[in-house]
C-alpha cells in the first residue's frame, strides 16, 4: 500500500512546488494585504483553491497577512480554501472518487469556504 500511494504523492509534491514558484508567498501577501477588500477576498479564495501549501508555510503567511493589516475574512477564506479545496490534487481525487463526485465535492467546499471566510470575518470584526 505504501508504494501505491507514494508515487501519486510525489507527483503532487512536484506539481505543488512548480505552482508555488509561479505564485510565491511574497506575491500572495502583496495582493492580500491591508485594504485589499473584495478583490483581495476573491484572490484569496482563488489562490487558496488552486494551490496546496503545507500548513507550516501557510500559517506563517497568514500571520504575516494579519500583521500587515489584512482582514480576518481574507485570511479565513485563504486558509479554508487551502485546506478544503484542491485544484492541484483534483486528478488524484478523481482517481479515488470519480470525476463527477470529486468536482462536486470541491465546488461545494469552495462555496462553504466563502461562507466560512465571510462569517469568521464578521464574527471577529464584531468581537474586536
Amino acid at each position: 500500500m505504501f508504494r501505491n500511494v507514494l508515487l501519486p504523492f510525489l507527483n503532487i509534491l512536484i506539481l505543488i512546488s512548480v505552482v508555488l514558484y509561479f505564485i510565491p508567498p511574497n506575491v500572495i501577501s502583496q495582493y492580500l494585504g491591508a485594504k485589499s477588500g473584495v478583490l483581495g477576498f476573491a484572490i484569496a479564495a482563488l489562490v487558496g483553491s488552486i494551490t496546496l501549501i503545507p500548513g507550516f508555510i501557510s500559517y506563517p503567511i497568514a500571520a504575516g497577512l494579519i500583521q500587515q493589516g489584512a482582514s480576518y475574512a481574507v485570511v479565513a477564506v485563504f486558509m479554508t480554501t487551502l485546506m478544503m479545496v484542491g485544484m492541484i490534487t483534483l486528478p488524484l481525487e478523481i482517481k479515488y472518487f470519480g470525476k463527477a463526485v470529486a468536482i462536486t465535492r470541491n465546488a461545494m467546499n469552495f462555496v462553504a469556504a466563502l461562507i466560512i471566510g465571510l462569517v469568521v470575518g464578521l464574527i471577529l470584526g464584531l468581537l474586536s
Binding site: 509534491l13 512536484i14 505543488i16 512546488s17 512548480v18 508555488l20 514558484y21 510565491p24 503545507p54 507550516f56 508555510i57
Partner: peptide, 9 residues
Amino acid sequence: TIFTSFTQS
C-alpha cells in the same frame, strides 16, 4: 527555488 519548496512539502 522549486526544489526548496519541494523539500518543504
